[in-house]
Design a protein around this nucleic acid. Structure first.
Lengths: 224, 224, 224, 224
DNA sequence: TATGAATGAGTGTTCATTCAT
DNA sequence: TATGAATGAACACTCATTCAT
């Protein structure tokens, strides 16, 4: 079933696209393991065996959803990053790109965030690889940030993974009616990432922080 | 099966405790839906029907793990917060408490973070309630923080949920051999939350940030 | 699909012939029930539905292979028997004809020998009928043999079916590299059939044989 | 389910024995691939999932039937061979032992004879090994036979496998009402194997045989 | 002449759970 | 307190076959 490829994906037919959409929804609602191919058949209106004409296994279904999502996000990110040089702006672009896609595809987001380690073999490897490329892009931006301004001495891995944690976790709480959309969310999160929630009272905070450290130690020892 | 309640939980017997530990491990490894009672029977050495003497269903197993974990974390948090008044310190205590428990009980952490919406009915309600109490505690600390110092004008819900995102996401990446332990991780994360990754060049960053905002809009519009 | 019939078969087109060849191989390798039409499609390079243009069902596929094989063997046998009158020679011709075809068409041989009772209805009847004709030819030769020489008093049915047993069983053990070809095999088997493995010490053997008979009876009774 | 082992088998429980009996019948009737576990469930009256409490897979079912049958036949053979030294008698014992078991367990016989190469892995290896031990026993007897009397110069492998062919093929034709029982069949087959169907006219036959050989060659060349 | 798309029925197997003991 | 035995429902997947083109 070879068709003209759309720019940012390799999904071939309309019908497969439709199946993938429904699958993402079902996976999002019941989890990959909790969802049955029958659920997807019901949801998509395609017969059980008809599904297998398009996708050879349940794993492949998940793989297609994940790889397509990552490819799209990464391709979009690269496009949005083009010609942007200020590291802070680049960071903001990354956050916005991520959240924008996630809020526009909440099902895919959930599937990406939740079903992190169910894939096996070649599927797993491929998804892991593109994920790593995405992560590396974020890491680069973080390093640019540090070179550009007087950044605090932070473990880059932790910083970047924390940022992803902030962003990915929204699938557990974001409600379109009450919470801000991508724009507002990106503002808050990139600001939080860059400058935290407080307003520049560094010295005092640091002192408190050290005190906190000790206090906790005491508390824990007392508790243990 | 009424037994003497231990201080911070209501888990009754040694054997049940053992079963719960093994269950958490199995759930963490295969996911709730992917794990079978047989897996748990095998892992724990308790016969399939023996399991049902202690726990009446698979859901209850998950419920017990989740409610116990939340209860323990919350109880511990309250104890550690006692007598601490500086909001920044209190925040640091919360972060440390959370991470400390998570890194000491990585299986339970994963089960808590991943199996967020599989419970139903009364179980779901009870877990949701204690989770809300925990969240409210965090929210209070955040409000204290704002009252105490010149905090940025941030949506508190988003700020707090982002913090939880940072912390909960670690179950996807933390490797004991390479990553810092609770102490170091708490330092980094509470500092990031309070002051961000940059070092006080507020004006400049803010300018960049605003620029970023606009740039992204342009980029996205151009792309769309 | 009426085509010109080839002399010794009614297989119509080149393509059907090709399909039948591949089918025989697949049936031989996986058994009739174990093989799927998809396997045959893959093996032959003909699309799944393309297959159905030539053959209306899986059963018919098997039927065509079996009937064609029997027809060919029988036709060949008759030709080879023409003008041969010595019963022993005729027997040798039958054995050689059978083995020669089998070793030249090992797949068809296996399908003939193994899939003896899967056909149903009309297909079954037709194959059974030609098989009976083949069997009758063998029976006739055996009777000629008895009339010609001083044959032992043997149940002809058992004698002939034992001969077929010897010959058909080779599909389970014959390996082209190590075992003799049709020529050598026919020598051994027709000799065995006519004169056994021993060399004419009839009296002694017969005595032993009778003793054996009794011994076994004793042994069995003792065991039972 | 450990019970006292019966002397010549390792089948543990009554129920498993019953399941195996029904399975053998179903496999005999429809072939291994053609039979479904549901068929066996129906035939045995055990629920589909109940079957899996006793046997972990369809393959194992076949394995158990085959290994048990071979073990029993081989054990019985060794017992019946004890104290018998005349090679011809020993041969007759082997034939009788084989046929006696087969006619008493026609289903198992069919399963043994037909489903020769469906087992895989460890199962296959184990069955192949015991089969080889059985074959080796037959080979030994054949060699004794040759040492004892003036046997014809025959490929022993072919002789023995032909004997097995004769015997195993009966599953395709033996009808209890019309054909002889084990006793009569054993007489005929061991006599045929030892002395053939003719009565000692060696010279003549051999001449005929050579003539046959040439005749066939001509016939084939003419036909090819 | 040939095939892509589709399906209802069935495959072997596992599931959470129960019940007599 | 514990488990061996059992099951109905469901699982992912494959089957032989059809039909519009």
């Amino acid at each position: 079933m070879p068709r003209v490829a759309t720019p940012d994906s390799r999904i071939a037919s309309r019908k497969l696209e439709m199946i993938l959409r429904h699958s993402a929804r079902v996976f999002a609602e019941k989890g990959y393991e909790g969802a049955s191919i029958r659920d997807i058949s019901r949801a998509s209106g395609v017969s059980l065996s008809g599904l297998y004409y398009y996708v050879e296994s349940k794993q492949k279904l998940l793989y297609l959803i994940q790889i397509h999502t990552f490819r799209t996000i990464l391709a979009q990110l690269r496009r949005n990053l083009e010609g942007v040089s200020d590291p802070a702006v680049r960071l903001r672009v990354l956050v916005h790109n991520h959240l924008e896609y996630f809020l526009r595809h909440p099902m895919e987001m959930k599937v990406l965030a939740r079903e992190d380690d169910v894939l096996a073999g070649e599927y797993r490897k491929e998804v892991a690889e593109i994920k790593r490329r995405y992560y590396d892009t974020a890491l680069e931006i973080f390093e640019e940030l540090r070179r550009a301004g007087p950044a605090r001495q932070l473990n880059p891995r932790i910083a970047v993974l924390s940022l992803f944690g902030m962003m990915n976790w929204i699938h557990t709480w974001h409600r379109p009616q009450v919470d801000p959309e991508a724009e507002g969310l990106s503002d808050v999160m990139s600001q939080m990432f860059l400058h935290g929630v407080m307003n520049g009272h560094r010295a005092g905070s640091q002192k408190s922080s050290r005190a906190a450290h000790n206090t906790v130690k005491i508390a824990v020892h007392a508790a243990g």
